[in-house]
Design a protein around this nucleic acid. Structure first.
Length: 322
DNA sequence: TAGGCCATCTGGTCCT
DNA sequence: AGGACCAGATGGCCTA
């Protein structure tokens, strides 16, 4: 939270400042004589040009002459301090602006629920690394690997957030980890989100109720991959999300959409901007808020009971932080 | 209430 | 001398 620059006197009154600097002066000169600041400054004004004497009353002979803390000097120091504080505030605001810009180009962005500074930097580092790996290898890795790379070293909330942004549900992670279900040689989306009529649709053991899925309709998924490698699917219409991204809702549906409002600023050359969405092809969710489960919910296995999800999150953490 | 995050102040150091 | 940068200290706010 940035605050407006404020009058320094709020923090420290002028008399406090004078006392502070006067005290420092006494300390630095090794004198223990106690005088009021008023007495000091008056006398010092007069003594400004006198020869300085040591504690024995003898003239100083060597070393740089220490300048006395006259009233004028104290004032000047105070002004410099105030100016330095203002500059420092401005510098930090600039740094925060830069961080805000960084937040907008990493995979999870919300105006209302910002990633912390450290998480933003970590995610950005992972993102750069993941993208450079894609370039180095020359082909798209499976989505699981991509997301796992993105989430390395991130806190649990951020991990959940990113995973949510990437439409990756807990089950997908677990499947990917065990390596027993993820299908290779085809689109990562089809392996993670198999089409409803796929024979692979049988409920994997230990992953709870998939009843919702059984009434499923075809789902279309688009992701960073598509926006990165291909043109975005016209069917991919990510709903605007004005609310906070938190709590990371993998617990319930794993559905997040990036706030794209700011992407307009980056406009046409925002090619790397993530555009993750999970849009039921012609299903009920297409027009509704991502947080509203339709009464005849056709959510696939994204939807879990909380107790199941909590257990999964523990496992997820193990996945992410190993 | 503890812990995380943040903004700000502050003094030190380095550089111009 | 003065500005930029940095790190430590401090206090406020928020959340689990």
């Amino acid at each position: 939270m940035l605050t407006l620059p404020f009058d320094e006197s709020v923090v420290m009154t002028e008399s406090q400042l004078c006392k502070k600097y006067a005290r420092e002066k006494l300390v630095s000169h090794g004198k223990n004589i106690k005088r009021s600041p008023e007495e000091e400054t008056e006398q010092e004004e007069e003594e400004e040009d006198k020869e300085e004497e040591d504690e024995n009353g003898l003239p100083r002979r060597r070393g740089p002459r220490k300048k006395k803390m006259t009233k004028i000097r104290i004032e000047r120091i105070k002004v410099r301090r105030v100016e330095a504080n203002a500059r420092e505030r401005g510098r930090m605001h600039g740094l925060n602006d830069a961080l805000d810009n960084l937040r907008k180009v990493v995979p999870c962005y919300s105006k209302t629920q910002k990633l912390s500074k450290i998480e933003t930097l970590r995610l950005a580092k992972n993102y750069i690394w993941a993208l450079s790996e894609i370039l180095r290898i020359g082909k798209r890795p499976d989505l699981l690997t991509f997301v796992q790379n993105l989430c390395k070293g991130l806190s649990q909330p951020t991990t959940n957030l990113v995973a949510g942004c990437l439409q990756l549900n807990a089950r997908s992670f677990l499947m990917g980890q065990s390596g027993d279900t993820v299908q290779h040689g085809r689109s990562p989306y089809s392996s993670i989100y198999p089409p409803y009529h796929s024979p692979e649709l049988s409920t994997p053991p230990g992953h709870g109720s998939l009843d919702n899925y059984k009434t499923g309709k075809p789902y279309n998924y688009c992701s960073a991959y598509e926006s990165f490698y291909e043109s975005t699917s016209p069917e991919c219409t990510s709903p605007q999300f004005e609310g906070p991204l938190s709590p990371p809702s993998m617990n319930y549906n794993g559905i997040f959409s990036l706030k794209q409002e700011e992407a307009l600023d980056y406009g046409k050359n925002y090619n790397y901007g993530m555009h993750y969405c999970a849009v039921p092809g012609r299903g009920p969710l297409g027009q509704s808020s991502m947080f509203k489960l339709p009464t005849d919910s056709h959510f696939p296995y994204d939807f879990h009971l909380r107790s199941q999800s909590l257990a999964m999150q523990d496992e997820l953490n193990a996945v992410f932080h190993n």
